[in-house]
Simulated scan of single mutants.
Amino acid sequence: MGFFSFLLLGLIAGALAKLILPGKQGGGWFVTLLLGVIGAMLGGWLGGLIFNVNLQGFFNLSTWLLAIGGSILVLLIYGLITGRKAKN
């Protein structure tokens, strides 16, 4: 996967993770891009470590699930660090 497609994947995965998580997370599109890319890398690493699957292609379902899952995990950690609480 190329650099720009990885950035696009991270942006979309970060935005979807923000939509999935309840409450309001801070940060604009740049923070979403950064956390999404970090989450995609984390998801790919954990997927390779646990399930022996990695981020292969832009249109693979496993790529998207790993990237979104990693982004959710990164957003949860970001929320714990910044002290933002999720509102139900």
Rank of each mutant, 00 (worst) to 15 (best):
87 K>C: 07
34 L>A: 14
17 A>D: 03
53 V>P: 06
44 G>C: 10
59 F>G: 15
61 L>Y: 12
46 L>Y: 12
20 I>A: 15
63 T>E: 02
42 L>N: 11
34 L>S: 11
60 N>A: 13
23 G>I: 01
13 A>L: 13
61 L>F: 11
18 K>V: 11
12 I>E: 02
4 F>I: 10
5 S>L: 14
16 L>I: 10
62 S>P: 13
46 L>E: 04
84 R>D: 15
30 F>M: 15
57 G>P: 01
22 P>I: 02
59 F>Y: 13
43 G>C: 13
8 L>S: 05
87 K>M: 10
31 V>R: 13
57 G>A: 05
46 L>Q: 11
74 V>A: 06
10 G>K: 00
79 G>W: 00
44 G>Q: 02
36 G>N: 04
19 L>Q: 09
26 G>P: 10
44 G>I: 02
48 G>C: 07
65 L>I: 06
42 L>R: 04
15 A>R: 09
47 G>A: 10
9 L>R: 00
84 R>P: 07
32 T>V: 06
37 V>Q: 05
52 N>Y: 11
17 A>L: 08
10 G>E: 03
56 Q>G: 12
73 L>K: 02
67 A>L: 03
71 S>I: 02
72 I>E: 02
67 A>F: 08
78 Y>C: 15
18 K>H: 08
45 W>R: 12
40 A>Q: 06
21 L>G: 07
88 N>I: 13
2 G>Q: 03
81 I>W: 10
19 L>R: 09
8 L>C: 07
12 I>D: 00
61 L>I: 10
80 L>S: 07
